[in-house]
């Protein structure tokens, strides 16, 4: 039985702009930044010849060579630590975790070294730490995590998570140009989703870190969310519109530092808030958002703030279990209807 499968392979430079998927948008962003700035480099497991487990870095090795596209041993602590060291020397590393679940062996380096450098001795670390996050593709407990809450309680780390191709490109470029460590989470379900294909500008642009976006304007209630759940929120909003409810969807885009102004403005407009996220409910980012609203806009609320999130279990593998675990559109609909009727 022959297994000889060697294929001729060449990955071309991505278009500048044009119609792109979510993953292509990230790839364009990294590519353009590497062209623009010779200090930008990519480091991670299988990012070179293989082009990354999901092919985000496909073709970079051929274009920029092994000096700037570095395949590492399986050691996330080394990836994060070495990225920090290179950044101290004036480089701008873009480090990949094969899955965000594998950020955990780099946790110490991220939360203790990367996060505290500027604060302790004024040494900024222009570093990007990125990778695929999220559940819903039956990958089980170790390839599905949403890790934002693990890092939210550590001052010194910025966290972004886009939900559109435009933002994916604009935010990766902004992250690479940012003077501080940025965790850039990519929901793997979005990578090749046809629905997210869109025309990107040919010209260079960034999406500012720290700014939310109104994904849909509405008057009756606000859904505050980010990442792949933005799509669930928009689908729920479309359904609720048929029932006469005008729902606003806020896509946070940046989770730290959070765009409080955008959140509070929406609360003051609709007076009812539903927070939707994919990570487990307890200790999730929803609690932080709800507390901010309670502290700063209590008198604007016409109903309790509601959270819709995953249940407090690991992410299970089997489809019926995973579906029950994750927030579904029907959960959003049910919560929104109750909220509207409150």
């Amino acid at each position: 039985m022959s297994t000889a499968t060697k294929k001729e392979h060449k990955s071309n430079r991505p278009a500048r702009g044009g119609v792109a998927t979510f993953i292509e948008a990230i790839r364009q962003g990294i590519w353009e930044e590497m062209e623009r700035d010779p200090t930008v480099f990519v480091i991670g497991e299988d990012v070179g010849a293989y082009g990354g487990a999901f092919k985000v870095t496909d073709g970079l090795l051929d274009e920029f060579g092994e000096g700037r596209v570095i395949d590492t041993p399986i050691s996330e602590a080394a990836i994060v630590g070495a990225a920090c060291g290179a950044a101290l020397m004036g480089m701008r590393p873009v480090a990949e975790f094969q899955f965000i679940d594998f950020i955990s062996p780099g946790f110490d380096m991220l939360t203790n070294y990367a996060a505290k450098c500027r604060y302790r001795w004024g040494a900024g670390l222009p570093t990007v730490f990125r990778g695929p996050c999220g559940a819903g593709v039956h990958s089980g407990p170790f390839h599905s995590v949403n890790a934002e809450a693990f890092f939210l309680n550590t001052a010194g780390l910025k966290i972004v998570e886009p939900s559109t191709a435009y933002d994916a490109k604009g935010l990766i470029k902004a992250a690479i140009r940012d003077p501080d460590p940025v965790l850039y989470f990519e929901h793997k379900k979005l990578y090749r989703l046809p629905r997210l294909r869109e025309e990107l500008p040919e010209d260079d642009y960034i999406v500012e870190i720290g700014k939310a976006r109104t994904a849909r304007a509405g008057r009756d209630l606000s859904i505050i969310t980010f990442g792949a759940q933005v799509l669930n929120a928009l689908d729920a909003a479309a359904e609720l519109e048929r029932e006469g409810l005008d729902v606003e969807v806020i896509d946070l885009r940046t989770l730290a530092p959070m765009d409080k102004e955008a959140i509070l403005a929406s609360v003051k407009k609709t007076n009812k808030v539903l927070i939707l996220h994919e990570a487990a409910r307890t200790g999730g980012i929803g609690g932080e958002i709800a507390a901010t609203i309670a502290e700063e806009a209590f008198e604007w609320l016409d109903a309790p703030v509601v959270r819709v999130a995953s249940i407090d279990t690991p992410v299970p593998y089997s489809p019926p279990l995973e579906e029950y675990h994750l927030p579904q559109i029907k959960d959003v609909l049910e919560a929104a209807r109750k909220l509207a009727a409150y």
Binding site: S139, P141, P316, S318, L321
Partner: peptide, 16 residues
Amino acid sequence: MAKAWGPSEGRDLNIH
């Protein structure tokens, strides 16, 4: 096959 009769009852994959 992520089935109920599997040893992890569908919670984890392969030989996990």
